[in-house]
């Protein structure tokens, strides 16, 4: 998989603090890329550098192998975390204006807008002023404005905030669809469930540096605690000292569940064999840490 966007040694220094300190990030083409990190870690600064809102003091950013330049912003769609629209403008005027600023012709802008409005079934909002719409409606308009010019890279900063669960699902579906149509999506969010659910790759930024980077499943593997969940039929399993320790046990309505931690160098088969000697195994699974746990572990370090 080739990288669509590569950042090398990006440094951004503000008057009183260094927002980015030698950041290297590779974003593979046509994936959903999670940009994670606590507040103030430098995510927004990094996104702004990609958008050419601000420039890096040091380092390079390449888009499809070429140095990122001002013309490239027409190929990027950006939904900032702090978002808004011109309240007095009509929905259609607003969308066409934003699309044309991204370099679209008026005709293309109109046809794309109509396509999206029909898709969300909100064509009747067209001639309403933005201030007449509810917050959720405005968010939808905002999302359409972000992708109306068919950008190659879509940057979404906390895209689900302000959406109810139904609309959140719709948004998730649309994001996946954008990916299927060939776009690369950079998702900056604190919602770790959606990261696990949607992201292929992630970078975790903390204190202006990249702490962790890679495929979501690999990352979780990397942070695994060698914990297993076992359910057996007969009784609570007892610990076997040189193979595993029991972390916790509790009876279920049928059977008994235990969380066990294997000793270093002990393989799964070894554990299963050991338990199945004495019990009937009803369920056995390895517990991978959630992204939430990975996040907290990395950030607290």
């Amino acid at each position: 998989m080739t990288n669509i966007l590569e950042a090398r040694g990006v440094v951004k220094q503000y008057a009183n603090h260094r927002a980015l300190d030698g950041v290297d990030i590779d974003i593979p083409e046509n994936c959903i890329y999670g940009l994670l990190g606590p507040n103030g870690a430098g995510k927004t600064t990094f996104i702004r550098i990609i958008n050419r809102i601000t420039a890096a003091d040091e380092g390079t950013i390449t888009l499809e192998g070429k140095q990122l330049c001002d013309n490239d912003i027409s190929r990027i769609g950006y939904l900032p975390e702090e978002r808004g629209l011109y309240k007095k403008m009509k929905v259609s005027e607003q969308m066409i204006y934003l699309a044309r600023l991204k370099g679209m012709t008026k005709k293309d802008a109109v046809s794309n807008m109509n396509m999206w409005l029909d898709k969300f079934d909100i064509a009747e909002w067209k001639s309403k002023k933005v201030e007449e719409l509810s917050k959720g409606m405005q968010q939808k308009i905002q999302f359409i404005s972000t992708v109306i010019h068919k950008p190659k890279i879509v940057i979404l900063d906390e895209p689900f905030s302000g959406f109810d669960p139904v609309n959140t699902e719709i948004m998730k579906k649309e994001i996946v669809e954008l990916k299927n149509e060939g776009a690369t999506i950079i998702l900056s969010t604190h919602n770790m469930n959606s990261v696990e659910e949607m992201c292929d790759e992630i970078s975790l930024i903390n204190h202006s540096k990249v702490m962790l980077q890679g495929n979501v499943n690999h990352v979780r593997q990397q942070f695994k605690k060698h914990l297993y969940r076992v359910v057996v039929a007969e009784d609570m399993i007892s610990s076997v000292n040189d193979i595993y320790d029991i972390v916790e046990s509790k009876p279920l309505t049928t059977g008994y569940q235990s969380i066990i931690k294997s000793k270093p160098g002990i393989g799964n088969n070894n554990i299963i064999r050991n338990i199945s000697d004495n019990y009937t195994i009803e369920c056995f699974e390895e517990l991978l840490p959630s992204m939430q746990e990975v996040f907290i572990e990395v950030v607290k370090k």
Binding site: I53, G84, Y86, S145
Partner: peptide, 14 residues
């Protein structure tokens, strides 16, 4: 205050 400005500057130079 509208926060439209960040969207604007992602399309045009400030």
């Amino acid at each position: 205050t509208n926060r439209i400005v960040e969207i604007m500057v992602s399309s045009v130079k400030p």
